[in-house]
Design a protein around this nucleic acid. Structure first.
Length: 422
RNA sequence: GUGGGCGUAGCUCAAUCGGUUAGAGCGUCUGGUUGUGGCCCAGAAGGCUGGGGGUUCAAGUCCCCUCGCUCACCCCA
């Protein structure tokens, strides 16, 4: 049997209510803040990701689903949510709208990686981006949007971690400071960290190796290397978060895995953090547009994994389910009743009644069992006796006596029964 | 890419030291009433024991390979 690709999942009907809860809650919070929906293609030109995400990142080095199309172009399945939205903003001239342009999306993300708890090759993210405004107030609103979404979902115990990476002009100095600090300690770094020290020194701070982590505690901090304007930006953001009563913790080792971030970076992590546990994160990326050859466009945004959000919804003991919604089950008892059954279903649905119709003539027992299992509130039985006289048997499923209704009066009869039987 | 654990029916699991026809519960379908649901009862369908090779008189069980799932590392959401 052909099986689904590794790291992908079939989403069966029983989990649909939980998914809907997450996406609808997010949409609601977005609309409350004037964010509008956007969707971008599943495939993009490979350069969009390689040039913005960064060559030294794991995402680019080993996790992209890239392929050559028939015309010889290299395309890549969306590996990240932000760059495509920025691309769409630039390509469609959205800078002509009032700024900032506030956008949100619900989409799938593809990364070639070994699956494990909370990690998949295809996963789904809710995300938002605010483009065209450098103000820290926009950072605050972005964080507020994500925090409010979690809260509305009953998740109120995530820890918000915050840091500022500064701007490109001060990044070089900070980078050099890290190199200067770690180079004498090279023999105490693991192989991975040594490699990073050469390619992307900031990421040494990311290491979870306890020995390396210990060294990181005394490493130079990015906050000490911020320029005047970046420092003010970070302070202002913190003032706003405090005004909004959104608690946070500054994490000097938070650098995020993608190269395009500057200034604000943040992550939401659960209290009993395992390693695959970041539920959502994001930051500012004022220089991202230029990396793809466009004019300067400041921006800030986040992505949050729906699968991981759901892990936390479940962890909080909430498992949304949808009640069965069938109002009426139609039971054809004789072969000749099938047409009438489907016609009735059509009429009832036109009147807004939820109907399931049996697809073949069978015994009342068999049909009623099905009706029960569908949790129908009423069943219409159509057999030879009814056909002969132009009526149907209308049986409420709550034990009330069954009645006979003329075909012409079925819709009214059903509505009457549904109104009283709850 | 590296390492650990696990693969028996749709699901959750049995199967003695390697022993004869691989079982149960749930679920599904049918019947118990030739036109009346849920509960109950009966029956049926459903298995290449993940796949391949090996050891043995005999393999679900032991060995090797492989595939899949899973957990962890790396990294991310």
């Amino acid at each position: 049997m052909i099986q689904r690709p590794r790291g992908t999942a079939d989403r069966l009907p029983d989990v649909a209510p939980a998914w809907q809860l997450v996406t609808e809650t997010f949409q609601r919070q977005c609309e409350l803040r004037g964010f509008a929906p956007i969707s971008t293609p599943t495939i993009e030109r490979t350069e969009l990701f390689t040039r913005t995400t960064g060559d030294a990142t794991d995402l680019v080095q080993k996790e992209m689903y890239s392929f050559e199309d028939r015309g010889g172009d290299s395309l890549t399945l969306r590996s990240e949510g932000t760059a495509p939205v920025v691309r769409a903003y630039v390509q469609n001239g959205l800078h002509n709208l009032p700024q900032p342009v506030k956008l949100y999306y619900v989409t799938s993300i593809f990364r070639y990686d070994r699956p494990q708890a909370g990690r998949y090759r295809e996963h789904h993210q809710i995300g938002a981006e605010a483009l065209g405004d450098p103000s820290p107030a926009v950072d605050a609103e972005i964080i507020d949007l994500l925090q409010a979404t979690y809260k509305a979902l009953g998740i109120d115990d995530l820890r918000l971690e915050l840091n500022s990476l500064g701007d490109p002009d001060t990044r070089a100095a900070y980078r050099q400071a890290l190199v200067d600090y770690f180079t004498p300690l090279t023999d105490r770094l693991d192989a991975e960290s040594r490699e990073r020290l050469k390619t992307n020194p900031l990421r040494v701070l990311d290491s979870k190796n306890p020995a390396v982590a210990e060294l990181c505690d005394d490493a130079p901090r990015s906050l000490d290397y911020l320029g005047e304007s970046a420092r003010a930006h970070f302070e202002q953001l913190q003032n706003l978060l405090q005004a909004l009563k959104i608690p946070y913790r500054i994490n000097h080792r938070l650098v995020r895995g993608l190269d395009y971030y500057n200034r604000t970076v943040f992550e939401f992590v659960p209290p009993d953090a395992g390693s695959q546990s970041t539920v959502g994160g994001g930051g500012r990326y004022d220089y991202l547009a230029e990396l793809m050859g466009a004019d300067h466009v400041p921006g800030v945004g986040f992505g949050s994994g729906i699968e991981r959000v759901l892990l936390n919804v479940e962890r909080r003991g909430m498992t949304p389910s949808r009640p069965q919604q069938t109002d009426v089950y139609i039971a054809p008892l004789a072969d000749g009743a099938l047409e009438s059954a489907m016609q009735l279903a059509q009429r009832l649905r036109f009147a807004g009644v939820t109907v399931e119709s049996g697809f073949r003539a069978a015994s009342p027992r068999s049909h009623l069992r099905r009706a029960s299992r569908a949790q129908a509130r009423a069943t219409l039985l159509i057999g030879a006796r009814e056909l002969e006289r132009g009526v149907v048997a209308l049986k409420p499923m709550n034990g009330t006596a069954q009645i006979e209704v003329a075909l012409a009066d079925v819709v009214a009869g059903v509505q009457k029964v549904l109104a009283v039987s709850t």
